[in-house]
């Protein structure tokens, strides 16, 4: 059973076909990259997976369960978490309150004994405060706990989004350019964090323009261009794929 399974998803906006029959799979504990030029449809795919846009065809399974017809919040309750390319933080709340809101929203729907995956060993029956503290510490945000998120630089605000998504204890996490706005050291730390999350069993689908990071942490990479998957495989094979190079740098000189 895969954490996330996307089969033949097609999305149309008016006459424009934004995604055509995209299929991909993210295993448990696997980090999968999704790359491609701007406008290739990566964010649209994320929106289709989490139910913000409605695909005209295709199925989406989270932890083996078909979520295609569900509303966004129901999919989240099946274990689907995400971050956003254009920040969607709770700007008037502090860093700690952002993460705390995530924990508390989860508490409204999580039933006792729910099988949501634990990404941190102690995470199961902690009081909200302790869980928030744990997440902030792990993301290196503890010092900023009381700072309003609206005043943070983008890179750190993205980490807050990640912390908030983790607070819902997802089984699969969709990350939309999480490392943009981070410097080299921070990006490296972030990569290590992803690997750790995956080791704890979380499936990660990573959209990222820092291809270095993608190549480094991903087991498998899908390349999207004009709404279709044009290549997939391990980092080495993708890097040497002619179609990929052409998609990135244009039609060759």
């Amino acid at each position: 059973m895969s954490a996330l399974e996307v089969r033949g998803v097609t999305v149309r906006f008016g006459g424009h076909q934004a995604l055509s029959e995209v299929s991909l799979e993210v295993g448990n504990g696997q980090i999968v990259g999704l790359i491609g030029p701007n406008g290739a449809g990566k964010t649209t795919l994320f929106n289709a997976v989490c139910g913000v846009v409605t695909p005209s065809a295709g199925t989406i399974r989270v932890m083996g369960r078909d979520v295609s017809g569900m509303a966004t919040h129901r999919r989240a309750r099946q274990g689907l978490g995400r971050t956003f390319q254009r920040l969607e933080v709770f700007a008037s709340l502090s860093v700690a309150e952002n993460v705390r809101a995530g924990v508390e929203i989860r508490n409204t729907w999580e039933r006792r004994g729910h099988t949501a995956r634990q990404f941190l060993a102690q995470g199961d029956s902690l009081p909200a405060d302790a869980e928030v503290e744990l997440i902030l510490n792990r993301l290196g945000l503890a010092e900023l706990a009381d700072v309003p998120v609206g005043s943070l630089p983008t890179g750190q605000a993205r980490l807050v989004e990640l912390g908030r998504a983790l607070a819902a204890r997802p089984s699969v996490l969709l990350l939309d350019e999480p490392a943009s706005g981070l410097d080299e050291t921070e990006t490296a730390d972030f990569g290590a964090l992803l690997v750790e999350l995956a080791a704890a069993g979380l499936g990660v689908l990573l959209v990222e323009h820092d291809v270095g990071l993608v190549m480094q942490v991903c087991e498998r990479i899908y390349v999207l261009d004009f709404g279709s998957v044009i290549a997939s495989g391990d980092p080495e094979s993708v890097r040497s794929n002619e179609a990929v190079v052409a998609a990135y740098l244009g039609a060759g000189t």
Binding site: C50, G51, V52, A71, T72, H73, R74, A76, R77, L80, G81, R82, F84, E88, V89, F90, A91, S92, L93, E97, N98, R100, A101, G102, E104, I105, R106, N107, T108, W109, A128, E161, R164, A165, A167, A168
Partner: peptide
Amino acid sequence: SAWGRRLTAMRDSPVACATLGLNL
């Protein structure tokens, strides 16, 4: 309370709340 934070969160970003599992 938690409920108040949820309302503020919903005002700031409804879509993020939905992806955390909140029934808007």
